[in-house]
Design a protein around this nucleic acid. Structure first.
Length: 484
RNA sequence: GGCCCGUUGGUCAAACGGCUAAGACAUCACCCUUUCACGGUGGAGACACGGGUUCGAUUCCCGUACGGGUCACCA
């Protein structure tokens, strides 16, 4: 049988990485087996409706590379794929169960249920479970509002199988007579979910482990209708690390207080979609080899339910950062430059410098957004601390710097401005004076950049600044050094 | 609180009764080097605890502790 999985988000306008990972595993489960991945929008809660929220879902899936085979936007044989367009579909199923004696009308008011809870009753007391036909008819005739509840077994126990967690058994006494149809005649989420999954032919239900304890209720519905129970794949949760008021580190379910946990947030911070997907694929799943970098094709080929872990995992920005850097380093010149171009433009850098820029930046950044900070020295040149000229490892101090700058400025001035010429001049000078290269490289780089850390070495810095600006800065620096 | 699930280094994790318990990120040291990166080499660092079962337990069973989830006319 062809595998069919589904991603069924509520349109909240925000795609959490936890949801995205669920979608990814659903996608991979289907694709690994050559199956279909279905998108269904669960928007039965009108109160929570957010404008444009479904577009966020489409965009996220598109950027993430999780292309669905059926969905509201592209159609399919099992539509409609938006729950609000299916509302009329659910109640007949519930009525059918009532007729068969597997469900019943419940006329209890919310007030009565609240009172029950106040009195310490857990769940529903099944007050309406055994009303007589007369009583029911009377209440119906008087238009008393009602919900439809399913009759669940009072004794015994239920066992089901999950591909990740194994066999799970629970006592039937734990099961409440669940509401199927609400007083407003809308289906409850659980009910709609089962009806939709079945009528859409979903074979593998992949979802977060928070559904582990309600799964027996879902199964009770499949059983009541005589439908096949789908294969269950429950996923461990993703956790975040944060610090509480007392300064203690706490680990809890990933949420906004852990920083950027929305897919789009991460994109805006400069993480590549492929890197995010790659990273979260490895959060809760491990391949059989030590491979860490996976393309989507490789994920599809290697994904295996057996590799899914049971225990929750902590979202680690460090590792995401590393994965992102791996993707950046693997880019060819063209694509790297494409991503970097907006930042180059920001600094007024012309195309003739792209080659050099990309070369020196590519191994140095872990996110594209870092380019700006790496290049600030091009725009800013202030009265930096002259102690920067002192550097033991480069055997440099203010005296050696004055000497080097004094000799090098006029020599540079006479130079044809290219990387090779600059390097030759500086190393040649070092050889001639029998000093280490760094004794001349260090002061020239510092004198021109005005900061200790620069992307690239002395020659690169000078090229990026250009001849005029470089010499201007070097003279200023020498001036300040000698005056001191 | 009841029920369910989980527990290998700081983090992600491999191992599905038999080893000196992989690997990756982070961290530290050294090398490379024209600063910083990149790259290379190496170091430190883990089976929550207590009972069983077994010739032998990280692995199986039972408790304890800790963590998480769930108990709606919400999704």
């Amino acid at each position: 049988m062809k595998i069919r999985t589904r991603f069924a988000p509520s349109p909240t306008g925000f795609m959490h990485v936890g949801n995205l990972r669920t979608a990814l595993y659903e996608f991979l489960t289907a694709k690994h087996g050559g199956g279909d991945f279905v998108l269904r929008i669960e928007d039965t809660d009108q109160e929570r409706y957010v404008e444009g929220a479904t577009d966020v879902i489409y965009n996220t899936l598109k950027i993430a590379g999780l292309t669905h085979d059926e969905g509201p936007d592209i159609g399919g044989d099992f539509g409609p794929y938006v729950q609000s367009e299916r509302v009329g579909l659910y109640k007949p199923y519930a009525e059918q169960l009532v007729k068969e004696g597997k469900a019943y009308y419940c006329f209890c008011t919310k007030e009565r249920l609240e009172k029950l809870h106040e009195d310490g009753v857990i769940g529903y007391d099944r007050h309406c479970r055994d009303l007589s036909a007369d009583e029911i008819q009377k209440l119906l005739d008087s238009n008393t509002p009602y919900v439809i509840r399913q009759k669940l077994p009072l004794t015994g126990e239920t066992t089901y199988h999950d591909c990740v967690y194994g066999d799970i058994t629970i006592s039937n006494e734990e099961l409440d007579d669940q509401v199927l149809i609400k007083a407003d005649s809308f289906p409850t989420y659980n009910f709609a979910n089962v009806i939709d999954d079945h009528t859409m032919g979903i074979t593998h239900v992949v979802r977060g482990s928070e559904y582990l304890s309600s799964t027996p209720k879902y199964n009770a519905l499949y059983d009541a209708f005589g439908w096949d129970i789908p294969t269950y794949i429950h996923l461990p949760l993703i956790m975040g690390k944060s610090v509480d008021e007392d300064g203690n580190e706490v680990i809890s379910k990933l949420s906004k207080r852990h920083g950027s946990t929305g897919f789009m947030d991460l994109i805006n911070e400069g993480y590549l979609p492929e890197a995010i997907i790659n990273y979260i694929a490895l959060l809760g799943w491990a391949p059989t080899t030590n491979q860490e970098i996976f393309s989507m094709e490789e994920l599809i080929a290697n994904f295996d339910i057996n590799g899914i872990s049971k225990s929750p995992s902590v979202f680690d920005y460090n590792k995401l950062e590393w994965v992102n850097a791996e993707y950046i380093k693997a880019m060819d010149f063209e694509s790297f430059t494409n991503y970097a171009k907006p930042y180059y433009d920001q600094y007024g850098l012309t195309e003739d410098k792209y080659q050099l820029l990309s070369e020196i930046l590519q191994p140095r950044i872990t996110r594209f957004t870092q380019i700006a900070e790496k290049l600030t020295f091009l725009k800013e040149f202030s009265d930096f601390d002259l102690s920067l000229f002192e550097h033991k490892k480069s055997k440099s101090n203010k005296e050696t710097s004055i000497a080097a700058l004094t000799d090098m400025i006029p020599a540079l001035e006479a130079l044809d401005w290219n990387s090779e010429a600059i390097s030759n001049l500086l190393t040649g000078y070092a050889t001639e004076k029998e000093i280490k290269n760094s004794v001349v490289m260090w002061p020239v780089r510092i004198g021109a950049a005005g900061v200790a850390v620069t992307p690239g070495g002395c020659a690169e810095v000078l090229i990026l600044l250009g001849k005029e600006e470089s010499l201007k800065r070097l003279k200023t620096s020498l001036d300040r050094l000698t005056k001191e």
